[in-house]
Amino acid sequence: MIYQESKILLEVCGLCATVNGIEILKGINLTIRSGEIHAIMGTNGSGKSTFAKVLAGHTAYKITGGTVTFEGKNLLDLAPEERARTGIFLGFQYPIEIPGVANNQFLRLAYNTAQVQRNKDELDPLEFDDLVREKMKLLEINPDFLSRSVNENFSGGEKKRNEILQMALLDPKLAILDETDSGLDIDALRIVANGVNQLANKDNATILVTHYQRMLNYIVPDFVHVMESGRIVKTGGKELAFDLEKHGYDWVNIEQPAIAGT
């Protein structure tokens, strides 16, 4: 939601990045204020997932130009774990499976890392169990989920719910959800979207990276950005997503020269 006098959380100016020498991001500009929900849409290969990973600090990408400021700090100076601790969360498109580590063990480790950062007490297993079970209700997660290995043999829907559960525990200032809707059936999508909506407040912000408009039926964005060839080529309100759904991404390309001219 757009609030009066909300502060700028994230400022991206002219961001360029390469992977294996190939330029993927070619000058991205984006400003996000607290309280806002932004959707970044685009075709496969438009660079939207790369943008999400670059913000989280993935080391496979080399920054070749531009700046990224998060709450006034230079984000590009920070390692991925420092970005996480400063309040950035990336919900993965393909969450990693870790056989051998129980989910509750992993969640508590991540949660306590955040607690230390917030100058709060770490929770012991019993205290944490109470907390995590409370958060799990929000996402309608089965309790056996805690004793299973992290994401191992989870369905697509369970993996994505586990991502949102981590987000709920870490309470980030900026959540970047990379194709969180992919691989979800309609019920799981509703549950996940409901979780995201409940976690959104006036002090945090959310970026939804998605190919399809359907998640935006459940999470209403304040801004919709369309990416194409490593740039944001069009920005609008939530109605832009409907136009894209109706006309397809080619419609933006036809529109683009007019936008560029304004």
Partner: peptide, 8 residues
Amino acid sequence: FYLKSRGL
């Protein structure tokens, strides 16, 4: 990277 993105 997955674990680091969770603050570890």
